[in-house]
Design a protein around this nucleic acid. Sequence first.
DNA 1: GATGAATGAGCCTTCATTCAT
DNA 2: GATGAATGAAGGCTCATTCAT
Lengths: 192, 192, 192, 192
Amino acid sequence: MAKIDRRKLILEEAARLFSAKRFDEVLMDDIAHQAGVGKGTIYTYFADKEELYFAVVFEGIRRLNEQLQRKANRQQNPEDELRRMVHAIVSFFSQNRFFFRLMSHEDGKSEGGRGENRKRWREERRIQLAAIETVLQNGTEEGVFSVEHPKVETAVLRDMVRSVMIHAKGMSVEAMVDTVMRIFLQGVRKKP
Amino acid sequence: MAKIDRRKLILEEAARLFSAKRFDEVLMDDIAHQAGVGKGTIYTYFADKEELYFAVVFEGIRRLNEQLQRKANRQQNPEDELRRMVHAIVSFFSQNRFFFRLMSHEDGKSEGGRGENRKRWREERRIQLAAIETVLQNGTEEGVFSVEHPKVETAVLRDMVRSVMIHAKGMSVEAMVDTVMRIFLQGVRKKP
Amino acid sequence: MAKIDRRKLILEEAARLFSAKRFDEVLMDDIAHQAGVGKGTIYTYFADKEELYFAVVFEGIRRLNEQLQRKANRQQNPEDELRRMVHAIVSFFSQNRFFFRLMSHEDGKSEGGRGENRKRWREERRIQLAAIETVLQNGTEEGVFSVEHPKVETAVLRDMVRSVMIHAKGMSVEAMVDTVMRIFLQGVRKKP
Amino acid sequence: MAKIDRRKLILEEAARLFSAKRFDEVLMDDIAHQAGVGKGTIYTYFADKEELYFAVVFEGIRRLNEQLQRKANRQQNPEDELRRMVHAIVSFFSQNRFFFRLMSHEDGKSEGGRGENRKRWREERRIQLAAIETVLQNGTEEGVFSVEHPKVETAVLRDMVRSVMIHAKGMSVEAMVDTVMRIFLQGVRKKP
DNA sequence: GATGAATGAGCCTTCATTCAT
DNA sequence: GATGAATGAAGGCTCATTCAT
């Protein structure tokens, strides 16, 4: 028993490699070798390099979405719920630097990938942002938040997390969450 | 006279293509063809594909830095100066979607490029952020801003611009600047 | 079974082609095609065109050295032993015109080849000549030969073989051996 | 005045380079640069790289033939005349290592060069060997030499020179001539 | 199912040659 | 005539993909 799940192994090593190098710099050979499987085996689980690549990206998004869904839908004050979600994102990426880098890459690219993936990519991102957006909107309805363009504010929040993670490498998870929340909630303007 | 500057031509078309597709999806043939020069000509100006790629990236950074330097160093109140800089960034990228996408890609990549480029990349980014950071710090000294981690807040601001530009595609430049400034300065927490 | 040895196949066809044309006139495509293998297969066995080229040259030298070693070390009179070796060289090259031409090309070239090959080339040649030199020296000790510069005389003998083979194309192997031996042993001066 | 003869300059540098490297390793750029002329200038004097290459080879042969013709046709004893010719060859090549190497390369090649050059090459070589052959035949008629295959013995003599020059690098011109003459005239068999 | 040797389409790069100055 | 920037045909090499074992 404990039969190794080759698909998962491949996915993990591919994530590690794709996050560290350009698509063309990552060789199927490398992935196979790192995953400890034969090169042909990869093609048992994934149609081609591109499919594997997107499988990696989607897997990352899926896992994060899972975390976000788990943290959301709780009955509590919007600021706390928001903090919980930011915490979930930071935690997730702290433990999955690969996905973090990967998902950053893709953002904003216009082509690449058979439109099929492109489309799914957008959909997954939509789902992810929707989870956060819901919290922002609930907060607005409760008079706690003041958001003018919910979708934009949502994206900005998520990207602030990304930014802090890149530029505050030494910081603890808690400190990063605090920093994001402080800026996002109250801004940097000195209060009287 | 008015001899065509082939180097510039190549750089421009390369920027356009690299911003739209993955590195390996952009063919030297395409670039040459789009730039209306012979394929060999590219190699007169750039050692290889990678060097061209980074030349494009660095050219974008250089131009933006130029804009930022021009807008900064003015004697005025910090909030206005900050707005001017955010405006400069948004304007620049609105007119140079290529560079925008390109510079996003590179951020956060860990390898890729003969370390040489990697190093220079970091340096260029440092210069860019320093221009913004100075404004934030001046504002803090004047008691207008309240920043805890200047470098982080600086990066966050720049990435907020990036985020808004990606997610608020329809918005006017002014509206984008307003959105960024509003969130960055006062946050989304409803004021009493 | 009787699986085809692709490395050998490639080596053989490469020898044939390299001996007939200039290095740059021989295409990797041709070699692959002639050998009946895919182009990529060549690179499974040889790092690049140059390595293949030298592998061919070295293979030729190695085979000839083998022949020479087999013929030498026999207990017999030096003239007969020498004749046996000359015979071995002539026979070998008669059956391997490729190697013959190839090995001639390289002789005397000063650069070319990553020094590594250059060095090995000299070493292989040294071994080859040493086999002949030993016979000359034994003969000298036994008072049968009169050589002043053993290394030079050795090289001259080998090159006489080369010369006869080039310029006496119609001759039988035996006749060529006779011609070489006659000139080398007694010279062309008319004896009284 | 003293207008530089560009054609000669190019020919000289080309000889130097072609003798040191493989045809494909010698770049027209290098030749132009070494000769201190523009790349285009080469094409004013030579149709293409191949023509330049053969012009170099033929120039070498022509010069050597000139030397041989000058030394021959003298009324003197055959051995002395032969020695004078061997001396001429050794001297020539000692001062023109380039041509030496170059002419060695070509010998024995089967293809390469538009048949035109191939043909001329054979012709030039024939002329060269004929000068030596004449002396051998005169000597035979006078009962001084004993040659069975004049053409072969002639070629062998010339190649012995080549061989000694390669393998007795330190030797003086005189010593090389002596060595060649000794072996060619009396052979290495110990006389009683 | 797993494997990796074999494959060849595809692309980067080189460099002989041209031609506007 | 001399030049060298520009050119693109040509070819070495890579690497995703296949398939016999």
